[in-house]
């Protein structure tokens, strides 16, 4: 049974000790961001994300997705708004290992000379002892299936392998909310499937931004549609993405698998009759 996490459930008359509200992973209120050469890239962003929630973020290019991610990580400072991550406000340039981000281009993120060194980077900065670092690194390399590459330089890896190593590097910091920026871009079918399975089995809350709408359908419980700096829609992925007029009004399309089935009456299969 999912506990309600809307703020106003406190007003239903029960003594609030009786209902234990899990602290939201992320609460964003009134977020506004402008670049010097582009105003209001994010206009008025409000969202709450629960722990272990799996959120998809869709929208046309230029909608503000990456800016949104950079703001909630504390990398960029918004003009207005409040960001609270696991109960603590996010201040510009704070180090918040509870949140991790997997970049669109893994090469930008794998900046160490070998895979092992790169994955060890985070744990070392967390102040772990060399023995703890070693354990942590081996653990995540194993869980991402990249242990065999430990000694290799990143440029000797394929796109899919780099993606998993980048994920390993983030997992090594044991975050509770992970952002995946276009994770399935440029992956071959097998790597993409591996990534889908990996995300389905993951423990953490995550936000996945992707143009690969089928990917979002398979992996997310909730979807946010961002366009022109605002959240246009927020809800069940199948419901939101089946709404063709809505999708097309915001530079998207209804994904093919939803073309004939709004409701899943084939127990999971998405093929046409």
């Amino acid at each position: 049974m999912k506990p309600q996490t809307e703020a106003n459930t406190y007003t239903n008359g029960y003594h609030h000790h009786a209902i234990k509200q899990p602290e939201p992973a992320l609460t964003v209120t009134g977020l506004r961001f402008s670049y010097t050469d582009k105003a209001d890239v994010l206009k008025d962003i409000n969202v709450t994300i629960k722990p272990k929630e799996r959120v998809g973020l869709i929208g046309p290019n230029g909608a503000g997705k990456t800016t949104f991610f950079m703001s909630i990580c504390g990398v960029q400072k918004p003009q207005a708004g409040e960001i609270v991550l696991f109960g603590k406000p996010v201040k510009h340039r704070d180090f918040r290992p509870e949140i991790g981000m997997v970049f669109q281009n893994s090469t930008d993120q794998l900046f160490s000379p070998t895979v092992w060194d790169d994955v060890a980077f985070g744990p070392q900065n967390l102040g772990l002892s060399p023995a703890e670092v070693e354990d942590r690194v081996n653990e995540v390399l194993t869980s991402t299936g990249t242990l065999a590459f430990a000694d290799r330089p990143p440029h000797h890896l394929s796109g899919g392998e780099r993606r998993m190593v980048a994920i390993a590097g983030i997992l090594a910091m044991q975050p509770q909310l992970i952002i995946y920026d276009e994770p399935s871009a440029n992956l071959d079918i097998r790597s993409r499937r591996r990534l889908i399975n990996f995300l389905k089995a993951s423990d953490q809350a995550f936000i996945v931004s992707s143009h690969d709408l089928e990917f979002i359908l398979e992996v997310c419980d909730r979807v946010l549609l961002l366009d022109e700096g605002q959240f246009i829609a927020d809800g069940d992925p199948k419901q939101v993405m089946s709404d063709s007029p809505l999708m097309e009004a915001h530079g998207l399309e209804r994904p093919h698998s939803l073309a004939f089935h709004k409701n899943d009456h084939h127990s999971g299969s998405k093929t046409t009759p």
Binding site: F95, D108, F121, N125, L126, G127
Partner: peptide, 20 residues
Amino acid sequence: RSERVYQAMILRGYGRAKIS
């Protein structure tokens, strides 16, 4: 690219490590 690399580095705590 260096801007993105820098962001990736500070996100993982660049500058905090005591090197052993």
